[in-house]
Design a protein around this nucleic acid. Structure first.
Length: 318
DNA sequence: AACCAGGACACAA
DNA sequence: TTGTGTCATGGT
C-alpha cells in the first residue's frame, strides 16, 4: 500500500499546534530552525513544518512507511482523508466541564500529547528534577552530543545524534555524567541506565501491563519517584489517564480548584484521579501549558504549610 | 543577588 | 504517615 519511498510526506491533520506541542515540556530535543522544527525520533532525523491543512515532514533518508512518525505524533497514518482531528476532539469531549480546565483548553488550541521512546523519556525526566526546562534541554543535548550515535542528516543540516541508549549510558562513569551538568542526578541516571540495559525492567513491555504494575516497576528505579514515573507512563507508555503532579500543577490545582485552601500533593493526586477521568493526562498537559505560558492565572503563591477547609470546585453547566 | 526550578531520598518526629 | 534538609547548577 505505501507509495514509493520518499523523503517527505504530508500528514493531513487539523488542530495540531506544532509550536506549542514541541515546546510544552514533554519532549526536550526539538529545535526550531530556519528549516522548521528539527529533531530525532529513534534513529531518524526529522524536520516538521505546520502547513495549510496539516503537517509536512522531511527526513534524511527515504521511508517505506511513516507509521513511526504518526505514532510519535499520535495522529493517523493514512493518507487521503483528513484524519487525526476526530480522535482529538473526542478525547477533549471526555474532559470534565469545569471552568478552569475549559479555560486552559480554550487557551491552548491544538495542544497534543506525543508518544516518545520510553528510555529517552524516562532518562530525560530523571534529569528534570528541580531543573528548569531550558536546563533539561541543555543536559540532554550534551548527553546526546557526547554519547549518542550520529544519525544521517540532509546536506546542509548541522549534525544530529540519537539519544544515547541505556546500554551506552550504563558504560559511563558518574563523573562523566556529572560533567554533562547532571549534578546530583548523575548517579540516578547511571544506575537506572544499568538496570534498564539489563532489562530490569523491560521498558518496552511496560505499556502492556496494568498501570499499577508499570508504575511500581518504574518507581523501583533509582531517582524515579511518583512524578517522574507518571511522566514516563503518560508521555511514552500510553497511559493517558495518568496525571503527573509537579510544582506547576500543584499550584495550579490549588489556585484553580481549592482557592483559600492548601491541600497536600497526595490529596491533590487523589482529587485529580477522580476528577479528570480517562484523559486526565491530556487534561494535565493543557493546565500545565496554559499556566506555564501565562495564559491562565493560577494566581497562588507557593506555600509549604497547609491549612483551611475544602471548597467545592466551580462547575459550569454546558 | 537572592530565589527557585516538570523531585527523590534519607531521616526525623 | 507527614514534615524537613540535602543534593548541583544556572536562569530570571
Amino acid at each position: 500500500m505505501p507509495a514509493k519511498p520518499n523523503r517527505s510526506r504530508f500528514f493531513p491533520v487539523e488542530d495540531f499546534d506544532l509550536d506549542g506541542t514541541l515546546d510544552s515540556g514533554q519532549a526536550f530535543r526539538w529545535k526550531k530552525t530556519a528549516r522548521g522544527w528539527e529533531g530525532v525520533i529513534g534513529r531518524r532525523w526529522v524536520c516538521l513544518n505546520a502547513v495549510k491543512g496539516g503537517l509536512q515532514a522531511e527526513t534524511a533518508r527515504p521511508n517505506a512507511h511513516w507509521a513511526w512518525l504518526a505514532e510519535y505524533l499520535q495522529i493517523e497514518a493514512g493518507g487521503g482523508r483528513r484524519l487525526g482531528s476526530l480522535g482529538y476532539r473526542e478525547r477533549m469531549g471526555r474532559f470534565p466541564k469545569d471552568r478552569a480546565l475549559q479555560g486552559a483548553v480554550k487557551a491552548c488550541p491544538g495542544l497534543r500529547l506525543l508518544r516518545q521512546e520510553p528510555w529517552e523519556c524516562l532518562a530525560s525526566f530523571i534529569l528534570s528534577s528541580t531543573k528548569q526546562i531550558v536546563q533539561i534541554r541543555q543536559i540532554v543535548d550534551t548527553l546526546c552530543e557526547r554519547y549518542g550515535e550520529p544519525v544521517p542528516v540532509p546536506t546542509g543540516v548541522e549534525p544530529w545524534n540519537a539519544f544515547p541508549t541505556a546500554r551506552s549510558l550504563a558504560k559511563r562513569t558518574e563523573g562523566q555524567l556529572r560533567s554533562c551538568k547532571a549534578g546530583f542526578r548523575a548517579p540516578y541516571l547511571l544506575r537506572s541506565a544499568q538496570l534498564v540495559a539489563a532489562g530490569k525492567p523491560d521498558l518496552g513491555r511496560l505499556s502492556s501491563r496494568p498501570l499499577e504494575e508499570a508504575r511500581e516497576a518504574l518507581m523501583a528505579l533509582p531517582g524515579v519517584g511518583r512524578k517522574i514515573a507518571d511522566c514516563a507512563l503518560l508521555f511514552s507508555l500510553g497511559f493517558r489517564q495518568v496525571f503527573p503532579v509537579d510544582t506547576w500543577i500543584l499550584r495550579a490545582l490549588r489556585g484553580l480548584y481549592f482557592p483559600g485552601r492548601n491541600p497536600s500533593p497526595d490529596e491533590l493526586r487523589r482529587f485529580a484521579d477522580s476528577h479528570f477521568g480517562p484523559e486526565a493526562g491530556f487534561a494535565q498537559q493543557f493546565l500545565f501549558h496554559a499556566i506555564r505560558t501565562g495564559r491562565l492565572e493560577a494566581g497562588v503563591p507557593k506555600t509549604t504549610r497547609r491549612s483551611g477547609k475544602p471548597k467545592g470546585i466551580q462547575e459550569t453547566r454546558e
